[in-house]
Amino acid sequence: MMKLHIKNMVCSRCKIVVKSVFENMGINPVSVDLGEVELKNDIQEIQKNELLKKLHAVGFDLIDDRKSKTIDKIKTLIIDLVQNKNNHLKTNLSEFLFQELHQDYNTLSNLFSEVENTTIEKYFINLKIEKVKELIIYDELSLSQIAYSLNYSSVSHLSNQFKKVTGFSPTHFKNIKTIKRKQIEDL
């Protein structure tokens, strides 16, 4: 068995695209998960280089070093938390990451800050604010419902954090919807 770690896999569509890249090369993965592809057999270096080119062409990259793998795992867990699990943490973020990655949070935090030039907390907040923007643009939920779904303690807390990050109140943002959302990989 061989496991490859892939950067920028953040959603179910990403899994479909990555799987098709492998299958188009005649490589049938055993499993494709966010950030990981498991293969039955090892692949040759030439095949790996070709795979790297094809993945890069569709916005993905292979991760080789241990630090990058850890950073990618942190990002994948936080993205999944915000996008798919409605941010309902049973513990705080540091405890969640410790439980998932079995590494001391201070070590993870220092590594993340060193490589990404931002803290895990700021990254998490930025992802949540992008999700808030998305939900405001969809215009299907009230601000109260958005605050609840993203586990904010109150609408006031969400509004304050939103204004701190974007410079606008959620209401003002809703009225000017022309402000573009950021792609996850740009955060």
Rank of each mutant, 00 (worst) to 15 (best):
V30G: 09
D72A: 13
K133H: 08
L34V: 09
E121T: 11
R13D: 12
E185N: 15
C14A: 03
S113A: 14
T119W: 02
E50Q: 09
K177R: 13
Y152G: 04
S159F: 04
I129S: 01
S31A: 12
E23F: 02
L51Y: 00
N126S: 12
N110L: 14
Y138V: 11
K131H: 10
L158I: 07
N151L: 08
L187R: 04
L150E: 08
V10D: 15
L158C: 07
H102C: 13
I176Q: 11
E134I: 08
D61C: 08
L89W: 08
S154G: 08
K48W: 00
K177L: 12
D72T: 12
L108A: 08
F98A: 09
T178G: 12
K40H: 09
I125N: 10
H56F: 12
D64Q: 05
E134R: 05
L97I: 05
L108H: 04
K75T: 09
N110V: 11
D65P: 03
V18F: 00
K3I: 11
V37K: 02
I71Y: 06
D42V: 03
V18K: 00
I71H: 03
V32W: 00
L150M: 06
V18H: 00
V32C: 01
N126L: 14
N92D: 15
A57W: 01
F168P: 06
L158V: 08
